[in-house]
Amino acid sequence: MSTATPSQPHTKWAAAALIGVVASVLLAVVVLAFLWPSKTSQTHNLPVGIAGPEASVTALKNAVGASGTFDFVSAGDRADAVRQIESRETYGAIVLGAGTTPPEVLTAPAGSAAAAQILTGVAAQLQAQVSQQVAAAGGNPAAVKVAVTPVVPLSSSDPSGAGLASASFPLAIGGMIGGIVISLLVVGAMRRLLAVAGFAVAAGLVIAFIMQTWFQYLQGDFLTNALAMGLTMLATSGFIIGCTSLLGRAGIAIGSVLTMFIGNPLSAAATPWQFLAEPWGAIGQFLVPGASGTLIRTLSYFPNADSSQQWWTLGGWAALGIVLTLVGHFRSRPGMHVPESTIEHPTEVRHAAV
Rank of each mutant, 00 (worst) to 15 (best):
M1R: 11
V29L: 10
H351P: 02
R350F: 11
R78W: 00
G52F: 12
P346W: 05
A51G: 04
L218S: 08
A55W: 08
P47E: 09
T101G: 06
V186E: 02
L223F: 13
H44K: 14
A143H: 05
V152I: 15
V148I: 03
M211F: 05
L314D: 00
M1K: 10
V201W: 01
L276Q: 12
R350I: 10
F169K: 03
T100C: 00
Q117M: 06
V151A: 10
A203S: 12
I118M: 09
F286T: 02
V73Y: 05
S292V: 08
D306K: 11
S67Q: 09
R333P: 00
L266W: 03
V206N: 11
G251E: 06
T100Q: 04
T90P: 07
I207Y: 10
T313R: 07
Q219C: 00
G76K: 08
R249T: 08
V181S: 08
I252T: 07
S24Q: 05
V338I: 14
P279C: 10
L27N: 01
Q133D: 07
A23P: 12
H351L: 12
R297N: 10
E344S: 11
V206F: 14
S237M: 05
A66N: 11
R83M: 03
R249N: 09
E278N: 01
A189G: 04
G293F: 11
A17Y: 00
Q8R: 12
T313M: 06
L246V: 08
V122T: 13
K12I: 13
A269Q: 14
V73I: 15
L194A: 15
V257E: 00
L119G: 07
I254V: 14
G263Q: 09
V338A: 08
S341D: 09
T213C: 02
F72D: 02
L218G: 09
V288K: 06
E86H: 01
T5K: 04
E344V: 14
P170D: 13
P103C: 08
G263I: 10
L194P: 03
L234T: 00
I262T: 02
V134M: 05
V152H: 05
H44P: 01
F302D: 04
R88Q: 13
S67L: 04
A143G: 14
A352W: 02
L324S: 02
A114K: 15
I118Y: 04
T43L: 11
A136G: 15
G281C: 06
Q129F: 02
V288P: 03
T11K: 05
Q216R: 15
I50N: 10
A51E: 00
A51L: 07
T107K: 01
L218T: 05
P159R: 09
V95I: 13
P265A: 04
Q132H: 06
H337K: 04
A124F: 09
V186Q: 06
